[in-house]
Amino acid sequence: MAGSALKRLMAEYKQLTLNPPEGIVAGPVDEENFFEWEALITGPEETCFEGGVFAAKLTFPSDYPLSPPKMKFTCDIFHPNIYSDGRVCISILHAPGDDPMGYESSAERWSPVQSVEKILLSVVSMLAEPNDESAANVDAAKTWRDNRARFNEIAHQTVRKSLGL
C-alpha cells in the first residue's frame, strides 16, 4: 500500500466526487500526483462575489493530514483575508503552534479532523463574511470597512474577470 497521506487524499477525492458540496469542485491536477489539487469555488449567493468562479490551487504536504495544506487563489481576488498574491489566510489552514496574526485560539486551527471539503466550505463562508480584524490584505480590509460601495464594485469586477468577461 502506498503512503497514508496518499490514501487519505484518494479517499477525500473519492468522497468529493461522490457527494460534491454545492458550489465547489476540487480534484488533483494530475492523477499521477495527488498532492497538488485544483479547486473551483463559486462566489456565495447574495454577496458581492455572487456569480464568480474562482480558481485556487491546494498544495498538500507529504505528512498530510498531520500538517495543513496550503491554498492559493490563482485568479485575482480582492478580499481582506486573501493576500494580494492569492494565498488564503484562514485559521484552519494554520497548524497549531504557528500563529501569523497572534490571535487565533488553537481550537480553530488545523487538525486531522479537517478535510479539503471543510477547508473549501470555510473559504466560501470567508468570501461571504470577511474578517477584517485579521487582515491579510490591508487595503481590502480598509476598503471593506470604510467604503463598502467601492469594495462591492471591485468585487464585481473580479467576478466578471473570473468569468472571462
Binding site: 496518499l6 499521477e32 500526483n33 495527488f34
Partner: peptide, 9 residues
C-alpha cells in the same frame, strides 16, 4: 525517492 511515497503507481 521521496516522491515514491506520493505516487500511487
Amino acid at each position: 525517492i521521496d516522491y515514491m511515497e506520493r505516487s500511487p503507481i
